[in-house]
Every structure is written in structure tokens, then in C-alpha cells.
């Protein structure tokens, strides 16, 4: 019983991390129809910033906003050039451009932060374990689950329940009309990309306590986030939540049940899911004919 609950919580904490990373990706995808493969780099940048911040002795909780800001700044720069020019281009070109950018960023980070594995010094408040049904469980993972749920909810409120979100969704459907209403869609899109990059950095800061930070992590995280978003059906909020849960649970429980072939089982499950539902969990009802 206790063991099962601990594993479920493990899966949930991983899902929370996937959700936060995936949301950054899916926000630009669903709202701007832009595929940003540099998102993994934003994540890793956030991780590095958090690790350095936590080692510096400054108030620990500021590490998260610092990571958000650092990644958001990188996002803002890249948005001006060259992302902005590619919003209207086909997905393939976006994939190529942003993958190229991510290769550059990855090497720059390897240059700046070194090639070794950096683990953050967690503050006392987040260290240690709690006992659930006599089973030890890392406190930090509970923290992740909580933060994931709260941030996810906030983002949903922002995009779904505010005027800003409404303008955004309208701009996606028909940019021209929204512009005739006097709304600057360029700034709107820039804001979304910066928000998404910041989210990437923030999730990197949060994830560092679980996955540490090292070269190559950007790609690993990117792939998982991409799988999350794709399994979720590209970009609806509910879909991304579902995708994060599917991927988080598949990866966690395949390790529990089939330790030898964990990834084979998990990948097969995800591939099988995509075979049965080629458009993911929540497919938009598009009229084709």
C-alpha cells in the first residue's frame, strides 16, 4: 500500500515537471502555431541559474524568479531575431531553425557552465524526506507536485479567463481582425514567447532538484516535453495535462514493473497510444472536407 502510494507520488512529481515544461512548449504551439525546439535550452538555462543562485547564499526562494527572468530574457532576445520571422513559416522550417538554435545554445552553455553534473544545494526547508505510510518520500517531490498544480492552474486562469487570453486566442484565429481592433499582435506574440521561455526556465529551476543539470539534459527534457505535448494532442491545456500524466506514469511505472526494459515498455506504450489516436488525446475538431 505505502509502496504503491509512494510510486504514484513519484509519477505525479515527474508529471508535474513534465506539465510545467510541456506547457511552455504547448502555449507557443497552440497560441502561435510555433514549434520551439529551443525550449529544452531554456529549461537547462533555468537549471544552471538556479544551481548557481542556490550556491551563492542569496535568499533561496529567489532562485526561481531569477531562473524565470534569465530564460525570459533569452527568449525575448531570440524572439526579436530570428524567431519572429518564422511564425508564419511551415512547421518543418520552425523545427529546423529552433533545433539549430538549441544546438548553439547547448554548446554555449557547455562553454559557460562546464561539462560536469551540477546538483543544487537545496535549502533546509526543501531537503529531507517525509514518511508516508512508513515509506520515506523526498519532500522536494511533494513541493514539485504542489508547485506544478498551482502554476498550471494560474496559467490556465491567465489564458482562459482573462481578457488578455481572449485577445490572444482571437489573434490566433484571425490576426487581421484583432489588429483592426487596435491590438498590437506582434507585442502579443512576443509576450507569449517570453512567457513560454520564462516558464521553461522556471521549470528548469524546479527540475534541478530532481534531475540536476548537465549538458545533454536540454535534449532529454525537450524530447519528453515534446512527447507530452504531442500525446496530449498539440496544445490544448487539458491535453497537455493528460499527456504529462500519461508520460509521467508510463515512465515511472515501467521502471517499477519492468526494471530491465523500462524505456522499451514506456516508449512502446506511448507509440501504441499514438497509433490508436494519431492526433493525440484532445484532437481539435477541424473540418477537413
Amino acid at each position: 500500500m505505502g509502496y504503491a502510494i509512494v510510486q504514484v507520488l513519484n509519477a505525479l512529481s515527474f508529471s508535474a515537471l513534465l506539465l510545467l515544461t510541456g506547457l511552455g512548449l504547448s502555449v507557443v504551439l497552440s497560441l502561435m502555431n510555433f514549434v520551439n525546439l529551443a525550449h529544452g535550452a531554456f529549461y537547462l538555462l533555468g537549471s544552471y541559474v538556479a544551481v548557481l543562485w542556490l550556491a551563492s547564499g542569496a535568499p533561496w526562494w529567489l532562485a526561481f524568479p531569477a531562473a524565470f527572468l534569465a530564460a525570459a530574457l533569452a527568449g525575448a532576445l531570440l524572439e526579436r531575431f530570428p524567431f519572429r520571422r518564422f511564425y508564419a513559416r511551415p512547421h518543418l522550417m520552425q523545427v529546423l531553425l529552433t533545433y539549430g538554435i538549441s544546438v548553439i545554445l547547448a554548446d554555449l552553455m557547455r562553454w559557460g557552465f562546464g561539462a560536469q553534473i551540477l546538483t543544487p544545494e537545496l535549502p533546509a526547508a526543501l531537503r529531507g524526506v517525509v514518511f508516508l505510510f512508513d515509506m520515506p518520500f523526498p519532500l522536494y517531490r511533494l513541493f514539485l507536485i504542489g508547485v506544478g498544480a498551482v502554476l498550471g492552474l494560474l496559467l490556465w486562469l491567465l489564458l482562459d479567463r482573462t481578457l488578455w487570453g481572449a485577445a490572444l486566442r482571437a489573434a490566433v484565429t484571425d490576426r487581421g481582425i484583432v489588429e483592426t481592433l487596435g491590438i498590437d499582435t506582434r507585442r502579443l506574440f512576443a509576450a507569449v514567447l517570453v512567457l513560454s521561455a520564462g516558464l521553461g526556465g522556471l521549470s528548469g529551476a524546479l527540475g534541478a532538484g530532481m534531475l540536476a543539470a548537465y549538458p545533454g539534459l536540454d535534449e532529454e527534457v525537450l524530447i519528453l516535453a515534446l512527447i507530452t505535448v504531442v500525446v496530449g494532442g498539440l496544445g490544448s491545456f487539458g491535453g497537455t495535462v493528460a499527456g504529462a500524466l500519461v508520460v509521467g506514469f508510463a515512465l515511472t511505472f515501467s521502471k517499477v514493473w519492468f526494471p530491465e526494459f523500462a524505456n522499451v515498455v514506456a516508449f512502446s506504450a506511448m507509440a501504441g497510444f499514438l497509433l490508436l489516436r494519431p492526433h493525440g488525446f484532445v484532437a481539435p475538431p477541424l473540418r477537413q472536407v
Partner: peptide
């Protein structure tokens, strides 16, 4: 057979990684 775009990208990635 039934996938396209990003779905196809991810599906081939998953199969390749298997």
C-alpha cells in the same frame, strides 16, 4: 500510416528509440 507532422516526428522518434 495515419500520422503526420509533429505526430509523425514523435512516432518515428519513439520507434527509433525502442
Amino acid at each position: 500510416m495515419r500520422s503526420s507532422h509533429l505526430f509523425l516526428l514523435i512516432l518515428t522518434l519513439l520507434l527509433g528509440q525502442i
